[in-house]
Amino acid sequence: MAITTKKTPVIKLRDLKKRFGIGDAETYALDGVDLTIKNGEFVAIMGPSGCGKTTLLNIIGLLDRSYFGQYELDEKPVDSISRRKQAFLRSKQIGYIFQNFNLVPRLNIIENVALPLTYSGVPRIKSLIIASDILKIFHLNEREYYMPHQLSGGQIQRVAIARALVNKPTIILADEPTGNLDSRSSHIIMEELAQLHKDGNTIIMVTHNANLTTYATRVITMLDGKIDTDSHDLAKPEKTKLKRPKVKKTKKKLAVKLKRKKR
């Protein structure tokens, strides 16, 4: 899962709006979202229910096409990408982890994990071999031929993560990945995601649990279809306020202090 860590914007959203209903019942699930996510970021999106987190994730994941505004994926406007190509991108570039796991119940574990490979044109046998390899990483190789209902919640979510990663995607979208898990399983899953981030993947995670934001490099809170706060934006003004020479001086002073301490 090693990818380039060059900080280029992978996702760029400009004045993104998503409307539900018509006439009197018209509501905006997203009401002018501007967001740029760079390569290798671990973004946690928080907010109350109905604030548009999942809708935003669905649009980023190319599942929802009916929106207003601009969406650029890898600096390419999504509107200009054909439906078929978008489907291909979903299988190659994007890995989706759902809250309720969303494994296909009538397929066994290995076939579930191999699904994205199938749609990116990998022959059946080869795709099963790759799926088996990735299940080994998640310590699930002994459960390859189990059916989803025979596994525990934590195991199923690990299968779902394995499936999301099988095509080596650069963007991983996780919609409340620990929402249906106990704290122990949640911890394991979050460690897995943290490891993926260390490997250089871009992770966008929707969560209700504030504790999980500690794993993220950037936290966005949403309210009524708009971005309320963004830790990225908060950092910027501080940086501009502090003049660089001052920082350098502080650094030098600190370095001198440290040297003295060591002696």
Binding site: L63, R83, R84, A87, F88, L115, Y119, S120
Partner: peptide, 11 residues
């Protein structure tokens, strides 16, 4: 699920 994992309408 299949569509989310990359299946096109034709698939």
């Amino acid at each position: 699920i299949r569509k989310a994992l990359g299946a096109s309408n034709t698939d």
